[in-house]
Nucleic acid binder design. Sequence first.
DNA 1: GAAAGCGATGTCAGTGACTGACGTCAGTGA
DNA 2: TCACTGACGTCAGTCACTGACATCGCTTTC
Lengths: 190, 190
Amino acid sequence: MVRWEPGTRERLQAAAMDLYVSRGFERTTVAEIAQAVGLTERTFFRHFADKREVLFGGQELLEQAFVDGVAAAAPDASPLAMVESALSAAAGFFPAERRSHSRQRQTIIAANPALQERELLKMAALAAVVAAALRARGVPEASATLAAESGVTVFGVAFVKWLAEGEQRSFLDIEREVLGELVAMAAGAA
Amino acid sequence: MVRWEPGTRERLQAAAMDLYVSRGFERTTVAEIAQAVGLTERTFFRHFADKREVLFGGQELLEQAFVDGVAAAAPDASPLAMVESALSAAAGFFPAERRSHSRQRQTIIAANPALQERELLKMAALAAVVAAALRARGVPEASATLAAESGVTVFGVAFVKWLAEGEQRSFLDIEREVLGELVAMAAGAA
DNA sequence: GAAAGCGATGTCAGTGACTGACGTCAGTGA
DNA sequence: TCACTGACGTCAGTCACTGACATCGCTTTC
């Protein structure tokens, strides 16, 4: 008999999601989450920096996908083409099966400014690593920042659309549509 | 003799800035801030929702400037032209005299993820009201969101540039430059 | 001009997030 | 065998934030 069940982190995440859904984020206590999986509040904080972070696992993987996408773009690609490649790479993270889970998560976040703050921070971090990846490919500072920020904006807008009721298209298709709209908008003002 | 000194809110803001600079944000207590102006912790929380909010006064005024800017754009202006108008209107908030103060504030924020989160939330709120203003002028949903987000991105990038050491140009000039770069980047991919 | 009400503040007693120090104990390797 | 490690528990403490209630100059009302 093992001393501790494996997958502590994952069990805490699942319990937190459940409780955030049923009681709401603010009305659930870290002690309750820990208790739900037979652990202590102190142990929760050994796995997650804070009560919000438990909803934001996998950030590093998403960042890596974006970075890999930038690296995979054609040698002579424009900054925006590199971003497009990154968006394509990230689309793999959101297959149709994941929509239900993502929707539930997004509902929780939408109900709490504190969680929105954390999400915005994650998106900002994402933009920062994408900008760094672009700079590593020789894109000048200003363009890199703008392209990265725009890319993350497209990602965010596409994500919300993907979650919309009745939406049937793949995440990738929606990303492409939104990116096209952005380019069209900017082109109209050139 | 009056019972209370006037300008409580402003005095709290000033004391908070001072302490955040000298001791750092995390190492200063709300009780200390209140004490510094002869008040109680409880009173601090009657003026500010939390310890971070004290650094983010004047948000409504900035939002209003953006909204007014959108409204002031030419009747046949494109979404991006409306955003440009909004950026121009906002530039009035950042005359050269304010750079020193803004720089100090930005240094505090840059040192604390919790404060960055709050700033990002404020920028997201700004984007939301700009998007609403664009929609009110007939811009379709998707374009409004993208144009607003792009505008706020330009604003943020321009703000950082404006604060850079050795930068001499006006905030408005920098905004225009950054917006131009964004349009050029998007146009290059059209 | 006394009484009533208002508004900004103080006081006090919480709750809950988060931290540091230290103890526990099954498994692991020398 | 035994030292050591890693994941967890226990405990005490700090601090952000909240609700309920008291205080008391000032203003309004009759």
